[in-house]
Amino acid sequence: MNEKQKLYIDELAESQGVAFSMAVEQGFDLCSFANMFMLSDARNHMDNGSAYWMTMTPDIMIDKLSMNSVDKATMLR
């Protein structure tokens, strides 16, 4: 793996972590979001090395994902 590929992977890992945190902050259930994300076309493009998706900022990534199938977290008090 060359240096450019390593930078893409590092950026992707950081962006995905931030996207997961943002989704939870927005009230989405983490397990539901993670399942949807891992099965998404976006994730498939990332796995195939699409620079467009691999360098996308987390907020735009979340906006582009179809969040209709993601459950909102229930608040238990």
Rank of each mutant, 00 (worst) to 15 (best):
residue 5 Q to C: 01
residue 5 Q to F: 03
residue 6 K to M: 12
residue 7 L to H: 15
residue 7 L to C: 13
residue 7 L to Q: 15
residue 7 L to T: 15
residue 9 I to C: 02
residue 9 I to V: 10
residue 10 D to N: 13
residue 10 D to Q: 14
residue 11 E to F: 00
residue 12 L to Y: 02
residue 12 L to W: 00
residue 12 L to P: 01
residue 13 A to M: 03
residue 13 A to E: 07
residue 14 E to Q: 09
residue 14 E to S: 08
residue 14 E to Y: 06
residue 15 S to E: 07
residue 15 S to T: 11
residue 17 G to H: 09
residue 17 G to A: 08
residue 18 V to L: 09
residue 18 V to F: 01
residue 20 F to S: 15
residue 20 F to P: 14
residue 20 F to Q: 15
residue 21 S to H: 02
residue 21 S to M: 00
residue 21 S to T: 01
residue 22 M to G: 00
residue 23 A to D: 10
residue 25 E to P: 00
residue 25 E to C: 03
residue 25 E to A: 07
residue 27 G to P: 12
residue 28 F to W: 05
residue 29 D to V: 15
residue 29 D to A: 15
residue 30 L to R: 04
residue 30 L to T: 02
residue 31 C to G: 08
residue 31 C to S: 10
residue 31 C to M: 08
residue 32 S to T: 10
residue 32 S to H: 02
residue 34 A to M: 07
residue 34 A to K: 09
residue 36 M to C: 06
residue 36 M to T: 08
residue 37 F to D: 14
residue 38 M to F: 07
residue 39 L to G: 04
residue 39 L to R: 14
residue 40 S to F: 01
residue 42 A to N: 08
residue 42 A to I: 09
residue 43 R to I: 02
residue 43 R to S: 12
residue 44 N to R: 10
residue 44 N to Q: 11
residue 44 N to G: 11
residue 45 H to W: 04
residue 46 M to W: 01
residue 46 M to E: 05
residue 48 N to P: 04
residue 48 N to Y: 05
residue 48 N to E: 08
residue 50 S to R: 03
residue 50 S to M: 05
residue 51 A to M: 04
residue 51 A to W: 04
residue 51 A to E: 07
residue 53 W to M: 15
residue 53 W to L: 14
residue 53 W to I: 14
residue 54 M to N: 13
residue 54 M to L: 14
residue 54 M to P: 09
residue 56 M to Y: 03
residue 57 T to L: 03
residue 57 T to V: 05
residue 58 P to N: 06
residue 59 D to E: 06
residue 60 I to G: 02
residue 61 M to K: 04
residue 62 I to L: 12
residue 63 D to N: 11
residue 64 K to R: 12
residue 64 K to A: 07
residue 64 K to Q: 11
